Amino acid sequence: MGVCYSRLLRSTALIAAGLATGLANPSPSQAATPAVVAGDGVLCDLTRTLSGGATDVRCLIPPGADPHHFQLTPANRRDISNSELVLINGYNLNPSLSRLDGNFELIAVGERAVPNNPNKDPHLWHSPANTGAMANVVADALQQLPINAESKQALKRRQQNVIAILKDLDTWNRQQISTIPADHRVLVSEHLAFEFFTDRYGMRHVAMIDDYATGGTLRPSSLRAISNAVKASKTKVLFPEQFPVSKTMKRISRSSGKPIAKNLVFADGTAPGKSLIETATSNTCTVVNAQGGSCNQASAERLQQRWSAVQ
């Protein structure tokens, strides 16, 4: 009986020692998953797609929310304080995120990806070429986190797939826009958010409020100037960025005689419940179909299927 009891004590001691060693020196499979915070919906989808579960990605700004006026919640602050890496767009897209400080690496992805940006326009992702550059910055940052060699190799594969899909999105956009009659290749919206899109594809952009309303105020002289610019642009419609449509846009519509498009163009991130690719193709199809072109929805869905299959 004494021998059995002694063996039991020794076994218990060995198990305890083994547990203590395991806690002190966790194996790669036991190590905590690195926490990453992504500022807005575009970065969130991009980071999660690239990460593929190798990191714990938390998103701050929900799809459809206005990043320009976003304020951090206590839960946001906890996520940030517990993270190893915080990714923001930069160029003052999210003013509340530009002054973050803590025991983490803060990267302004857009500023690294697109340093040549004279107007400091934060809406970089409306050009897939810019989004591809942002993907490379994010992937490089994720590679620096404490993830195992297998995860690093998988990350490289996902990066290659993401870049390939974005290049095909760029080609697809160009093909769809080419179906719009030349006179109608214009995007008339309220704000200067689509310059990278229109510049990329040889379109004209009229930003009704930012270009013509002093301080955002629509005076009678401003209304006349906007109406004249809208008529001269030969656009078929005005493109809203939010529903319900603002009173200002309704006034401009009445004054210019141009109807308001039935579908939104999403200026400041991903659409609610939609991926980066779904939002981009939706924006393109909204513009193309409203301006007299023909958008290939089936090929847009194939791009999304490829995006969803990245792993």
Rank of each mutant, 00 (worst) to 15 (best):
G52L: 05
T73S: 14
R77E: 13
T49K: 09
G64P: 06
H68S: 11
P74W: 07
A54E: 12
P67W: 01
N76V: 03
L50R: 01
P63F: 04
I61D: 06
R48N: 14
D66T: 12
I61S: 09
D45C: 02
G53I: 12
F70D: 09
D45H: 00
L50P: 02
T49I: 07
D56Q: 15
G53A: 11
R58S: 13
P67F: 03
F70C: 10
R58E: 08
I61N: 11
R58V: 03
L60Y: 01
D56L: 12
D56V: 02
F70P: 10
G53T: 10
A65M: 03
A54D: 07
H69E: 14
L50M: 00
R77M: 13
T47N: 05
T73R: 15
P74S: 08
P67G: 06
R77G: 01
L46E: 06
A75E: 15
Q71N: 14
L50I: 04
C59F: 03
H69A: 14
R48Y: 00
L60K: 03
C59A: 11
Q71W: 00
P67A: 02
T49V: 11
T49D: 01
P62D: 12
S51D: 10
H69W: 11
I61R: 07
H69T: 15
T47V: 07
T47Y: 00
P74A: 04
P74V: 05
C44Y: 05
R58N: 09
L46T: 06
V57Y: 03
A65P: 00
I61G: 09
G52C: 11
V57I: 08
A54Y: 12
S51L: 09
N76Y: 01
A65T: 08
T49L: 05
H68I: 04
P63I: 02
D56E: 13
T49S: 08
L46N: 08
C44V: 04
T73W: 02
P62S: 14
T55K: 02
C44M: 02
H69F: 13
V57E: 09
I61M: 04
A75L: 15
A54V: 14
R48Q: 14
L60W: 04
D56T: 04
D66R: 13
P67R: 06
D45R: 04
G64F: 04
F70Q: 13
G53E: 04
T73L: 11
L72M: 14
A75S: 15
H68Q: 13
R58P: 01
C44P: 05
N76H: 13
A54H: 08
R77C: 05
P63V: 10
P74M: 02
H68E: 11
L72D: 11
G53V: 10
G52K: 12
T73M: 10
Q71V: 11
D45T: 10
T47P: 10
L46C: 05
L72C: 09
T47L: 06
N76K: 01
Q71I: 00
I61K: 09
L50G: 01
Q71S: 14
P62A: 15
G64W: 00
V57R: 08
A65D: 12
P62L: 11
P74I: 08
H68A: 11
A65F: 06
C44L: 12
D45F: 03
V57A: 08
L72F: 07
F70G: 10
F70A: 13
T47A: 07
D56A: 15
R58K: 12
P63G: 01
P63M: 02
G53P: 12
L72V: 08
I61E: 07
A54I: 13
D66E: 15
V57L: 08
R77D: 08
N76I: 02
G53R: 09
